[in-house]
Design a protein around this nucleic acid. Structure first.
Lengths: 154, 154
DNA sequence: TTAGGTGCAAATCTTTTGCAGAAAG
DNA sequence: CTTTCTGCAAAAGATTTGCACCTAA
């Protein structure tokens, strides 16, 4: 954990930015919740526990800065809030999502099926891939069952 | 064109909704700009040319309704506005996007590489796929060249 | 001392909602 | 009539910005 913070500190400093206490607290929250997709508001509430004086604007500015440095990735599931994911050293940042259009639930699948496609893109389009995102919209198991029940009722 | 409007009219009516002049104007704008990813504001401005009295709220409500009926698909590129794509009869709604994280440009590629994955999903997760979305973030050709130039300058 | 950072409040921007009136079956 | 739909204006919610103060190299 400390090692990863040090690395982020270096990334910041190499661009002339400082790892202030507020930024460090924010990064720690991201590290401790690496599995989640936290919104800015989520991060804010968690950071407040460590640094109660922090302002929401600072959290936004920090997340924005970390995005620019590619330390975190900004995600959008279409629910009106941006979410922020740490880009692991372990670069297992290839999440894929199954988003149910009926109940809004979101399930994550972790495989990375797209390596070969990325290679093809770099060749055919000279597009240098940093990350990708693959979301499936559809109807989850539960909602399919609900639908069947409703049809049975009618 | 008229045929597609008729079909949408039927889809609406089968759910108890009407194809009002405002809705028709909105659908026509979507049809005429099928290649673009229009935001609600974009649609609003274009619809105003045909139906100047229309309100922005009506456009939002119409797009929302058409989304529910799966006539259009709501997209989110992470730039803070929702965009709306008509789902063609021809169901070539499998766009993939190359989004440049530096200049924000977006290029579209149309192949559908994911058929086999969808089958696998339906089997492994019992998730009924309606649509998918595959976005690649990275650095486009132009920005790669700019970067090289800058390095040469230093 | 000087640039970078911060908190707060105000501003901005997108989207949604309440409401009274209009349109359509 | 009764339900659906509309425009307008206000509200809501997320994010950004202006500004005066602060803090570290």
């Amino acid at each position: 954990m400390e090692a990863r913070i040090d690395k982020i500190k270096q990334q910041l400093q190499s661009q002339g930015y400082k790892l202030t206490p507020q930024r460090e607290a924010t990064v720690r929250v991201l590290l401790e919740n690496e599995e989640d997709h936290l919104s800015a508001e989520d991060v804010f509430m968690l950071v407040k526990e460590k640094a109660p004086e922090i302002g929401l604007a600072t959290v936004y500015r920090t997340l924005e800065l970390l995005s620019e440095l590619h330390v975190v990735q900004k995600l959008n599931f279409g629910d009106g809030v941006a979410r922020y994911d740490l880009r692991g050293d372990n670069t297992k940042h290839h999440h894929h999502h199954l988003i149910c259009v009926q109940c809004g639930s979101m399930q994550e699948i972790l495989d990375d099926w797209l390596g070969p496609l990325e290679e093809r893109l770099e060749k055919e389009f000279q597009f240098q891939v940093i990350d990708h995102r693959l979301d499936f919209q559809g109807i989850c198991k539960k909602c399919q069952e609900k639908e069947k029940d409703q049809q049975a009722d009618q």
